[in-house]
């Protein structure tokens, strides 16, 4: 089957900065962020929409960027872990991970933090159970869930 692949122009605001790029339609958002914009904070874990390591905010809500096409983010705002801090001041969720030692190897951490930001945005004062359910789409191979939950709880109490 011969396919006329036409690159598509996209305009995406990433961490507050406008980008205009030509991408192949099959480019995944995670690939665009990491390979084109060199924002390597968002990770690829499973590449099959299961682990959440690639979680970013798309127009303010958490999505798995390995399951979103870059062309689907056209004219949207994306926030990655790199865009979360306010200058030298960590976002409360980032600070929570520092306070409660919410990471071991750190591989899942950027996705975990972005998922938690979206969760707290929708539910600013979650119970422990709601936090556990809220991050069900994020896997931590080091299985340090206890401290991750504590970190999110800390952020809820300190923001």
């Amino acid at each position: 089957m011969a396919i006329a692949v036409v690159n598509r122009r996209i305009e995406v605001t990433v961490n507050g900065k406008a980008h205009v790029d030509e991408v192949e339609p099959r480019t995944l958002l995670i690939q665009y962020l990491r390979e084109k914009l060199d924002l390597t904070g968002s990770h690829v874990g499973c590449d099959t929409s299961n682990c959440g390591a690639c979680t970013v905010l798309l127009d303010g809500v958490s999505v798995k960027s390995c399951t979103v096409l870059a062309v689907q983010a056209d004219e949207c705002a994306v926030t990655t872990i790199e865009g979360l801090a306010d200058g030298d001041t960590f976002h409360p969720v980032q600070q929570g991970f520092v306070e409660k030692h919410g990471l071991q190897c750190g591989y899942c951490t950027p996705g975990m933090i972005m998922a938690a930001v979206s969760l707290l945005d929708e539910n600013p004062h979650p119970t422990e159970q709601e936090i556990r359910e809220g991050i069900e789409g994020n896997l931590c191979r080091c299985t340090g869930y206890k401290n991750i939950v504590d970190a999110i709880q800390w952020a809820a109490e300190n923001s």
């Binding site: 979680t55 999505v63 998922a115 979206s118």
Partner: peptide
């Protein structure tokens, strides 16, 4: 359905 990220999309 799925998880929070899946339900957003």
């Amino acid at each position: 359905v799925g998880d929070l990220q899946v339900r957003h999309r």
